[in-house]
């Protein structure tokens, strides 16, 4: 009985679908990690503006929570909607493999934007990352070094223990500290994980301060972690003793920079990731951009972009540093 209703409805639906298909603007969708995550508002802004200037249809969707599997029904739905390009900030490096493969077999261009499926690169066409992640560790060490006079104990407050991007940066930080004589007087005493939750990050930061009374600096390469660390330092009033830096959102850090709790921190432009993703996707589809390692293309406002190893594309060469002088120029 149920089947019959379904078949009847199916016929009606097909008639519906055929009229709706008659359109030619390319459809791009970006699937975020979860809704309510302020970071993605800025990326989405880049997508929207680029689609307005180039003429494509854009939609942002995201599951309510950021579990490994919560994006799967959304990818299935976008395949069903017949979109041309899926951009995704993957919640898992491997749980999405099967469904992304389905998407690509239907001719959909799959881009990971702001985070990659490391180790499973064959399931996406290219990845768009804000900077070359190899330099993040180096730059963050230099940042904290300059804040503490290149001398003393430092610690890292990261996201989750297995967060692939953060772990890559932490490896970079360790290598930089060992390799460069400039940092010989700095010692990394602990790496702790706040799981990107404010409560957990706060207790980890408090534990760092009690376990290491001589701590001079903390690197928190995650937006949740740096805000939590800054808040602990602010409420204890020890900004002159412990320097907090890392990667943060200007909108979340503005108050801490203005009251001197945080002298400087870094990030990139999430907006440009969306902007670049749309230009790249449309170029690949109309054939003007070859999705091959080494090929180059022009993007308005960003200049010449090169496709790096593993089909990885970066929006900027260096991290942007935010401090009291420039923080008001950024509205994300």
């Amino acid at each position: 009985m149920f089947k019959k209703a379904l078949v009847l409805g199916l016929a009606a639906g097909l008639a519906f679908a055929s009229t709706a298909m008659a359109q030619d603007a390319l459809k791009i969708v970006y699937i975020g990690k979860n809704t309510g995550n302020p970071y993605f508002d800025s990326i989405t802004g880049g997508f929207v503006d680029a689609c307005e200037s180039l003429g494509c249809e854009f939609e942002f969707v995201a599951p309510a929570t950021a579990e490994a599997t919560s994006q799967i029904p959304f990818i299935e739905a976008q395949i069903q909607r017949g979109v041309n390009v899926i951009g995704i900030a993957p919640n898992s490096p491997d749980a999405l493999n099967q469904v992304l493969e389905d998407a690509r077999s239907k001719g959909i261009l799959v881009l990971t934007v702001n985070g990659d499926i490391t180790g499973n690169e064959q399931y996406r066409d290219a990845t768009i990352l804000p900077v070359n992640f190899d330099i993040v560790g180096r730059d963050q060490v230099e940042m904290v070094g300059s804040l503490i006079g290149y001398e003393g104990e430092i610690a890292i407050l990261s996201a989750t223990t297995e967060a692939p991007d953060q772990n890559k940066w932490i490896v970079g930080m360790n290598e930089t500290l060992k390799a460069d004589a400039k940092y010989a007087k700095m010692s990394l005493v602990a790496t702790v994980y706040g799981d990107d939750q404010p409560e957990k990050s706060t207790t980890e930061m408090e534990a760092l301060l009690s376990n290491f009374p001589n701590l001079k600096g903390v690197i928190a390469p995650t937006t949740v972690g740096i805000a939590a660390a800054a808040q602990v330092v602010q409420s204890r009033g020890i900004a002159d003793k412990v320097a907090v830096t890392g990667l943060g959102l200007p909108s979340e850090m503005r108050d801490f920079v203005k009251d001197g709790t945080v002298k400087a921190f870094q990030l990139w432009s999430p907006y440009n990731e969306g902007w670049l993703a749309v230009h790249f996707a449309l170029g690949v589809i109309d054939g003007s951009i070859k999705n091959e390692v080494g090929s180059t293309f022009e993007v308005p406002n960003l200049g010449t972009i090169t496709i790096n190893a593993n089909n990885s594309i970066n929006t900027q060469a260096e991290l942007t540093t935010f401090n009291a002088e420039n923080i008001d120029e950024f509205d994300f």
Partner: peptide, 23 residues
Amino acid sequence: VFGGSVLSPFFLDLSYILRSFTL
């Protein structure tokens, strides 16, 4: 079923619904 087909023209497709059911 009817609500879904009104909301989106892509909804009523038996193989899609079966695939979604597997999730």
